[in-house]
């Protein structure tokens, strides 16, 4: 475990391999919800929370349940079930203890279950921080940190995109390019600029 490792996870998860612009995870929510800044922020915060928590939970499930019983091939089923029930649980808790927060998140929370970014982080953590079915040193901390960083990368891309799209509302664009196609073309240019972070190393 070293600071350098954490820094390189940070740089690669937030910038170089940005979850949306380079790995294409969570793309559906990215184009669907980035029309305005406020819902975009709500969605990003919800995603960040869920990626972090699901990194923790899936790490424990993999390390203490799937490996000892030698059923690692069931990881997809196990992870998606855990994530889905976790999201459901969070929704119920928020609804109970903080109705304003629940209204703030609205429908975005249940949508996260099928957000590929969440399952993507879980699978990525396993691929990166488990070698030959054994956890590498500090793999738990790396996993959690990667969960946070991926959420952060999602937030950055989401905020940039929604800011741009809010301004684009005032421009006249051809009818066939409106909405989705335009969003993708903008995302392409953003992704190009994020490529500039390539080569950052520690």
């Amino acid at each position: 475990m070293s600071i350098g490792q954490f820094l390189s996870i940070f740089i690669s998860a937030v910038f170089v391999y940005n979850v949306i612009l380079s790995r294409f995870l969570g793309l559906c929510s990215f184009v669907a919800i980035s029309k305005e800044t406020k819902p975009a922020l709500a969605m990003s915060l919800a995603v960040m929370f869920v990626t972090t928590m699901s990194s923790i939970i899936t790490w424990f499930i993999y390390r203490f349940l799937l490996i000892p019983f030698n059923i690692t091939y069931l990881r997809t089923i196990a992870f998606i079930l855990v994530i889905a029930s976790f999201v459901q649980l969070v929704e119920m808790i928020i609804k109970k203890i903080s109705p304003p927060l629940y209204r703030f998140f609205g429908i975005y929370l249940p949508l996260i279950t099928v957000n590929c970014a969440v399952l993507g982080v879980a699978v990525l953590n396993i691929d990166m921080f488990f070698v030959n079915g054994k956890a590498i040193e500090g793999s738990f901390y790396y996993s959690v940190f990667q969960g946070i960083c991926v959420g952060l990368g999602y937030t950055i891309a989401m905020l940039l995109m929604s800011g741009i799209r809010e301004r684009l509302d005032f421009c006249s664009v051809p009818k066939c390019v409106k909405e989705f196609p335009l969003a993708f073309i903008i995302a392409s240019i953003m992704s190009m600029s994020f490529m500039g972070f390539n080569g950052f190393k520690f």
């Binding site: 612009l21 790995r23 390019v177 409106k178 989705f180 196609p181 969003a183 073309i185 392409s188």
Partner: peptide
Amino acid sequence: FIFALPSGALLVIGLLMSLFGLLKN
């Protein structure tokens, strides 16, 4: 090479989608 990179993918799908939209209209 840009087309093999992520940004090329986004560009291609954006243009193809607008083409489909154009045909539909």
